[in-house]
Design a protein around this nucleic acid. Structure first.
Lengths: 233, 233
DNA sequence: GCTACTTTCTATACGCGTATAGAAACTCGC
DNA sequence: GCGAGTTTCTATACGCGTATAGAAAGTAGC
């Protein structure tokens, strides 16, 4: 029954997504606007909104398309290494696409086609001896770190491209060496030190710590200092 | 020589920042637009741009103001606990303010008045035995995790407020239980499990891992300690 | 063929951040 | 007192994402 009711569509979701791909490829993230996209597809901007809820959903579709082709590398057998390797693969796949950043806030599950990554990480964590619940926690923690690193990376790149290194200079120039001796000791080298890629190092530390499991949830040690009230609700 | 040349200003940066504070207090983040702010200050939108480079700088000023009053809690003496306590204080101070998210991508130093946090964390890391360079790396890694967690938290809150829980439902409904057994096992409980606050847990894992320092930079891999699943000794 | 109904697409408009051009209001050198 | 220079403020406009209203183009029942 291919006979559907209503005005027949001139464009499809797939048309939109592939046009978006083309634009991003040719003109980068900034070139992808709903108006520009409409022109590319050959329709009006608002027509897009009948196929896509908003721009964020469009980016999610783009991610999903892209995720289908992301590398699923051979993984080591040992659990900790396996977790780290899967996370690195996820990180590397995402870090290369600047527009990803706009979608990172969307969800911790990313897209359907990217579910292989959480699955693999959670599975490795369970194999390493965590309960399923704690494995999920571990995945989310790794994800927060990963998303944060990618965001910072993108911001640093943007800063580099825009050229204005003034702010950090000013900070270190005005810095009170008595109150902040460590930062003063770093001084001009901040720029250089923070340019290094520390994702892998942090990830390994995280995996080690998560599996070491020194501080079980609700455990007594390393209690939070300061007031007890949680400012989020 | 208080007699400066040029047309005398009607408004100051301080006026702008305090008006912005007022608006955010009264109407939340969404209420803070450059046009609304201009109305509050009693001027035109473009006049603001002579005192503030762009909206992001305004938010940074707001953060700096706010940072001056952030809690600097009494810290434990032991280094690892000290690092964690400072990071938790930073996290809690930032997590309460939704608009912070827009500024998180700005810089890893945040604002001048917030430098106490990196200083404290780096200092504790050095005391724990890291070199200054590695202590800076540790701080940045902690910062990436913290920023990522806060962003995800804000996104989750937004999702909660907007009410649409459809996406995750759909994901788990369509989920291929053979290809993704762990996620399938979690199933409906994903929502519940990911609502938990795991910042502290992750942070402690990170600190443990960073100080355990098993995998020095440039080291060969995570192999090293045999093929044991218990990475702590 | 007409009417009702459904789906898709178009036109218009709003508020956003901010670029650009130039007017306004002051000091200074003469 | 008057032009030159400097700083600040105003007017206008652009492109953005997208809300809203309604026109267009089909099918289904009569």
């Amino acid at each position: 029954m291919p006979a559907r009711t209503g005005r027949p569509p001139k464009i499809s979701r797939a048309d939109i997504v592939s046009a978006a791909h083309r634009i991003i490829e040719a003109e980068g993230t900034e070139g992808l606007t709903m108006r520009r996209l409409a022109r590319e597809v050959g329709t009006t901007p608002m027509a897009l909104y009948h196929h896509v809820h908003d721009k964020e959903e469009l980016l999610l579709l783009l991610l999903d398309d892209y995720a289908a082709e992301m590398p699923r590398p051979e993984l080591p057998d040992e659990s900790a290494e396996r977790m780290a390797a899967a996370a690195v693969a996820l990180h590397d796949a995402l870090a290369g696409r600047p527009w990803i950043v706009d979608v990172l806030r969307a969800d911790d599950l990313l897209s359907v086609n990217a579910l292989w990554y959480p699955e693999t990480i959670i599975d490795a964590a369970v194999r390493a001896g965590l309960t399923l619940e704690r494995a999920v926690d571990a995945y989310r923690i790794i994800w927060h770190y990963t998303a944060g690193e990618i965001t910072a990376r993108a911001a640093a790149r943007r800063r580099r491209e825009e050229g204005g290194p003034t702010y950090r200079r000013r900070v270190f120039a005005e810095l009170d060496a008595e109150a902040l001796p460590r930062l003063a000791a770093v001084g001009d080298r901040w720029e250089e030190l923070t340019a290094r890629d520390t994702y892998g190092e942090g990830l390994r530390a995280l995996v080690v710590g998560l599996l070491a499991n020194r501080f079980a949830m609700g455990g007594p040690s390393m209690k939070r200092s300061g007031s007890d009230d949680d400012p989020m609700d």
